[in-house]
Simulated assay, not measured.
Amino acid sequence: MIRMLMLALALPVSASSWAAPRRDAVLLREFVYQQAPYPQSHASTIVQTRNGALAAAWFGGTHERSPDVEIWFARRDAKGWETPRSVANGIQPDGTRLPTWNPVLFQDPAGPLHLYYKLGPSPQSWWGMVVTSPDGGRSWSKPQRLPEGMLGPIKNKPVVLRSGAWLAPSSTENGSTWEWKLHFERSEDSGRSWTQTAPVPVDPEARFDAIQPSILFLPGGKLEAIARSRQGVLVAAQSADEGKSWGKLFAVDLPNPNSGTDAVTLKDGRQLIVYNHAAQQPDTPGKGRRYPLNIAISRDGVHWRPALTLETEPLPEGYAYPAVIQSADGLVHITYTWNRQRIRHVVVDPARLAG
C-alpha cells in the first residue's frame, strides 16, 4: 500500500505537462442546455440510438441527495439538443419522494433503448431501476425495479460481449467504513434477467477501494475494468472469461482525485479514457479537485499517454463524471458535469489525438 501511495504522489499532475498540442481534435463544444428548472445537475450519460441520433441523460434537482432530484433526458438532432424533460423521479406510492442517481443509457443492438438509474436515500441503500423506450427516447415505459440484489450499471455503460451477453459494470459502497468494491452484472437474455459476479479481489498488501468501473476490450479476447479509487490512482482488473471472473486490482499510471471516469475501446483498437488528471492526497479521505479534465490513450490499458486536455480553468465544482462513446461515424462524444450547473457535450476526432 505504501508503495502505491508513493506512486500516487509521484505522478505528474501539472495541467501544462499533460496539455495536448492538437486542439483541432475538438470538433464541437456545446452545452446540452442553457437554462433548467433546477440549480444543480450531475452524472451525465450519452448514447447513440438505433436511428443514429444522440441522446443524453443526467440527474438534476436542488442538490445531490435532495428528494426532488429527477432523471432528465434530451435528444440531439441536426438542429441541436431538444429541450430536456424529466423521464424518471423518486415519487413513491404514498406520495413521499426519494432522490434518483446516476443514470446510464444503453442501446440494445436489436431492441429498445434502456435507461438504468438508482433510487434511494444514499449510495449505501439505493437500488437499481430501469425504463425502456421503443422509439429512441420519445416515449418511456413505466419504471421497473431490477431483480433483488441487482444495482445495474452503476455509472458507466454496459457492453455487448462476443457471445452476445450484456455485461454491466457495477460497484457497492457498503458499511460504516465506506468499503468500496467492484462487481459485474451479466444478462444472457437482453436484460430480462441478471446474474452477479463475485466482488473483484483485492490484494491485501496493496488494498484499493474502488467503484464505478468502465469496461475495455483488450487484444486476445481479454477484458479490462478501469475504475476510480480512494487511493489517488486509477486502478484496473482484467478478465479472460468474458467477465465471469477477474484478477486482482492493480494501479495504472494515471492519478485520480476520487472522481468518476469513463473509458471506451476505439474501433482502431486503442483505449481512450476521460478523467481528471489530478491527484488526491492519500491521507485526505475527501474528494480532490476535479480539474483539469483530460483524455489519455493506451494500447494495453495499463500504460497511458496524454492525448488532449478538455478543460483547465479552475471552477468551484470543476468538471466531473464524464461519459464517452464512439459513434458509428468514428467520432468520440463526451458529456460531463460543468461546475454542477450544466452538462457539456464535446465531439472529438480520435484520428487527430496525440499519444
Rank of each mutant, 00 (worst) to 15 (best):
R3E: 15
P147H: 06
F217M: 10
V302M: 08
L54H: 03
T197C: 09
L182E: 07
L167P: 06
S14R: 08
D349V: 12
R145L: 09
Q92V: 02
L234F: 03
E179M: 05
P322L: 09
T265I: 07
F250I: 10
E148S: 09
A53C: 01
H42G: 07
A198Q: 15
P143A: 03
W140A: 07
S298A: 14
L9S: 11
P21G: 07
P199Q: 01
L234W: 03
S176D: 14
K142G: 00
P199C: 07
I343Y: 06
L54M: 05
E242Y: 12
F59D: 09
F73H: 03
H345A: 03
G288D: 07
T197W: 03
P199E: 09
R85G: 04
L167V: 08
Y116C: 00
A88Q: 03
P37N: 03
K155Y: 13
Q281E: 13
A110G: 05
E64R: 10
F208K: 13
Q238V: 12
P285F: 12
R289N: 06
S239F: 03
G52S: 12
A206W: 02
R75H: 08
W126A: 09
S122E: 11
T62Q: 15
T132V: 02
S86M: 11
S16V: 12
T45R: 01
E64S: 13
P123H: 04
E70D: 15
P204K: 14
W126E: 06
A168D: 11
I215Q: 11
V235D: 13
A36Y: 04
S41G: 12
D283G: 00
Q281N: 09
H333L: 02
Q34P: 00
Y116S: 00
D329S: 10
K142Q: 15
S259H: 13
S139A: 09
P201L: 05
I295K: 01
E313A: 14
K222H: 13
A25D: 04
Q40V: 09
S141A: 00
W81Y: 04
N89F: 01
D349L: 02
A279T: 15
N156V: 11
L113Y: 04
G80Q: 06
N339F: 00
P67W: 02
Q271D: 07
H42Y: 14
M6T: 07
R85E: 01
T335L: 05
G111R: 02
W304M: 12
A10R: 15
E30A: 06
P147W: 07
W338H: 14
E64A: 03
I211E: 08
A55P: 02
R145E: 04
A165L: 04
N258P: 05
R23V: 06
I325L: 14
T100R: 07
E313V: 13
